[in-house]
Design a protein around this nucleic acid. Structure first.
Lengths: 242, 242
DNA sequence: CGGTTCTTTGACGAGATTCAATGCCGGTGG
DNA sequence: CCACCGGCATTGAATCTCGTCAAAGAACCG
């Protein structure tokens, strides 16, 4: 019941979900030098080609990573919710290979890269947790390759929504029965490799089949078992940590 | 000019390309307990759902990671060449979320997981190199999401071939002008989310355009600049380390 | 050499895109 | 308070890319 919870609290919760760490590790984590930034929707947080000097965490709101095709097409490669680590990879990779954008108003925490490097060097349990988080990220990317490569449009969209709902519920942002869904149909299309028009048609079908119900900004899954089936969704790839 | 080079030599070369490590680190790496295994083509190395107890490296030949869709469709999510780390991720993730298969006769080196864990704990430079390698892997997955999500068939296939040629050349397996290409058109389709029939048509077009020349098991890029253009290929995502 | 796998090609069909128009909703200013 | 505006959702019609089915030819292997 803090009036001002520590800004790194969402990160701590996430790390705890990934792997247990000691009290000393927790203190060290919370002692990281950081600065908090509020951003509005649709702002660039990292731009492809940048050489970031700080690491970024998302403590409130929603964000997405995306890449641009030569023809101007956009592909969202992952979405992120409160507590997610947005670009720890720049600890070890110099240049950003993709962009990160806020999808809603969001609160970020920027960490000094050097401080994070020391932290993971001196506190192996934290290093392991971060590494593991990066591996789960990679697993999600693999699932997305499968999703856009081999599933038809309806399954693809349902799968992406399933993942969103499961991860959001794990982060305590709502329930499967009622979840905030802050994506436009165009953004869902960018994440699934489809056009907004076709996303609309497939969402209509999923709705008509009684699997989901939609109202602006809200997704209600009416039939979770059926929806997972329609999505060919198996949460194993999330490694129970996202 | 060893008659019997050390079986971990390809891994050492790879680690050196990722990040410089000390002589002591190199010795520690080569001292890892390991066992060598030769496998024939199309064998499972890791199966989705397994709980691997060893880590696997590819020191000779070619391999691919793949996932299955509910309808039986297969999606290759990455291919691997000599020197690649095939599944270091099981250091920190218990259950395999995808399969790994040999694509040709191949030589594997299996490392005891516990020994690798100690190594990365005690030798941070090696840990960093492995972590960085995992991050480059993830970057490649993101590019593949873009590739199958937003590029048309011809560009998609060309891009996949560009990546293959660049990585193979970096590993010293040939040149852009002449490279072993041990994939069937069906496998190229599985990697790009297309059917073998359509892969064939697009390869014919790329050939007719004078960009590439094909003979069984061999790819010759006739016009590297033009081919990269046709592929919308920009090697930045490889982070000069794959 | 005979069988198997891989490649190649054609005809046809399906799923997704494109183009275009309409409606809806929230915000803003007169 | 309401008219206007811009972004988003929705729908239909035409089109196109890619998939499916089928068959024949080429390369590889024992």
């Amino acid at each position: 019941m803090h009036a001002n919870p520590h800004p790194l609290q969402p990160l701590l919760s996430k790390v705890r979900r990934i792997a247990p760490i000691s009290v000393a590790d927790e203190s060290a984590l919370l002692a990281l030098p950081h600065r908090v930034e509020d951003v509005s929707a649709n702002r660039y947080i990292v731009r492809e080609g940048d050489i970031p000097r700080e690491c970024c965490l998302l403590v409130k709101g929603y964000a997405a990573r995306s890449k641009l095709a030569a023809d101007g097409g956009r592909q969202i490669v992952s979405f992120h919710i409160a507590g997610d680590i947005l670009d720890l990879q720049h600890l070890f990779l110099e240049r950003a290979d993709h962009s990160v954008q806020s999808m809603t108003e969001a609160t970020l925490v920027w960490l000094q890269m050097a401080a994070v490097r020391s932290l993971v060097a001196e506190r192996p349990a934290i290093g392991t947790a971060f590494w593991r988080d990066a591996l789960v990220d990679a697993s999600i990317f693999r699932e997305w390759v499968l999703n856009v490569g081999r599933r038809d449009a309806k399954t693809r969209i349902a799968h992406m929504l399933c993942e969103f709902v499961v991860r959001s519920e794990a982060a305590g942002l709502g329930t499967v029965e009622r979840m905030r869904l802050p994506f436009t149909q165009e953004q869902i299309g960018d994440a699934t490799g489809l056009t907004a028009v076709h996303v609309n048609r497939m969402l209509r079908e999923l709705t008509e089949e009684g699997l989901i119900e939609r109202s602006p900004g809200i997704l209600r899954v009416q039939d979770w078992a059926g929806f997972k089936r329609a999505a060919a969704f198996n949460a194993a790839y999330l490694h129970a940590a996202a």
